[in-house]
Design a protein around this nucleic acid. Structure first.
Lengths: 228, 228
DNA sequence: CGCTGCTTTGATTCGTATCAATAGCAGTGG
DNA sequence: CCACTGCTATTGATACGAATCAAAGCAGCG
């Protein structure tokens, strides 16, 4: 059983919609689990045994083809919700990109609990609508943008979603929780193309790449311009 | 005010979750409206004044760039729900592809009504989850599939979603509610590439193209194979 | 120090976009 | 019924961007 009182994401996760009694009930159903970087929590086509809240770390949602091609269709951060409630099989693979910690529930119990708690469903609905908006805008990127536009858009998006490296919202840049191949899988590019675009942007002074995974945007206007 | 009793999509739309009294209340809030082919119901960035159910026709959800590039991010069929409930601005343009008929609601009134009717929210949640799954699988297509795979996937998807041309589920093929440019905008291709792929498939005997918009799949296995 | 795995750079190929022209159909009016 | 017009679809030639193939550079680690 989880210790909801000490939960780091309590106020931002869907659980925030519950009063103390309800939270206690849900808490009894869930348990914390560590997921090592690279390990998979849910497989595509699984009979969706679980749903979960993310407490720590970053996970990816992946759709894979038979021949090995992969497209990352979503990133999941702390306080985000994972899984497919209401009786469908898991539509994609969920894999940890960093060491992560999640609070998992048996799907059936969760469904039943949700059924009895409209507030929870409402929170879930809001989240799902936001995710849908995000996914659809990413479709525009995947279908219509050039490699340079893709990379520029990606950098701005990551700067917004990732915690700033030196705490405040200063100009410290940010640290990606994954490598070049993953960027490529997010953008629908190859690793080489992704790399070349980044190199070019550095050469043009738009960004600094202080280390493999760290990025600092120097000229936000130019990058936004490039994002199309 | 709408005449819910005579509504053709009543049993499939989100309204199906309501009892007669509730339906009557919602009915008072909504009104039917025709939308001509090509006309836009909702603009991207609008303060999302309305939501609606589709009664008849097909509409598209479009994300457009400043320079005119367009990506269709969703198709909306009868009984589907349109709009962005809960206080967000409309994230995409909604345009009718055929003459259509919708049952529209003032968004604020609808939000408030939904707030009081958990069943409705639940239906909405189910739909939104399904749409999200669909969108994310389409991301795989847009980011990773080749032109031929895209077109093959598209044909199978349309055959499944569109009514069969001769009523039954026989081999009569189906009729697209839109032209080649729109297919291209769905697949993230140009009209020329789309066209060439279709021509090739016809030459290979995989499909017949009896008229501009009609399509008949001859070799479903081969097409599925091609879809990757 | 020398692995090992990731990243970067380079040379070449290939697929799709682009540009341009032609063909075919639908609607209009003579 | 046919000529005319406008639009959509098809076909062709070429250009360009990204993928692929190949090799070298670089960091982390035993």
């Amino acid at each position: 059983m989880s210790d909801c009182a000490s939960c780091t994401v309590r106020c931002r996760a869907i659980c925030a919609s519950l009063d103390p009694d309800e939270a206690a009930e849900l808490g009894k159903m869930g348990r914390r689990q560590r997921v090592r970087a690279g390990h998979t929590l849910l497989w595509e086509g699984d009979e969706a045994p679980t749903v979960a809240n993310v407490l720590k770390g970053v996970l990816k949602l992946v759709v894979a083809a038979a021949d090995g091609r992969e497209q990352i269709v979503g990133l999941v951060f702390p306080s985000d919700f994972i899984g497919r409630p209401f009786g469908k099989q898991s539509p994609y693979r969920v894999t940890a990109m960093t060491d992560a910690e999640v609070c998992i529930f048996n799907r059936k119990s969760f469904d039943e609990f949700a059924e009895r708690h409209p507030h929870l469903q409402q929170k879930l609905l809001h989240r799902t609508l936001d995710e849908l908006d995000r996914a659809r805008h990413w479709m525009m990127l995947l279908g219509r943008k050039s490699a340079s536009e893709k990379v520029a858009t990606f950098l701005l998006d990551m700067e917004e979603r990732l915690p700033n490296v030196d705490g405040t919202n200063a100009e410290g840049g940010f640290e990606l929780p994954f490598g070049r191949q993953q960027i490529a899988d997010i953008l629908g590019l190859t690793i080489e193309t992704t790399c070349r675009q980044l190199t070019r942007m550095r050469a043009d002074g738009l960004v600094d790449l202080p280390s493999r995974r760290a990025i600092r945007i120097n000229d936000r206007v130019a990058v936004a311009d490039m994002a199309g």
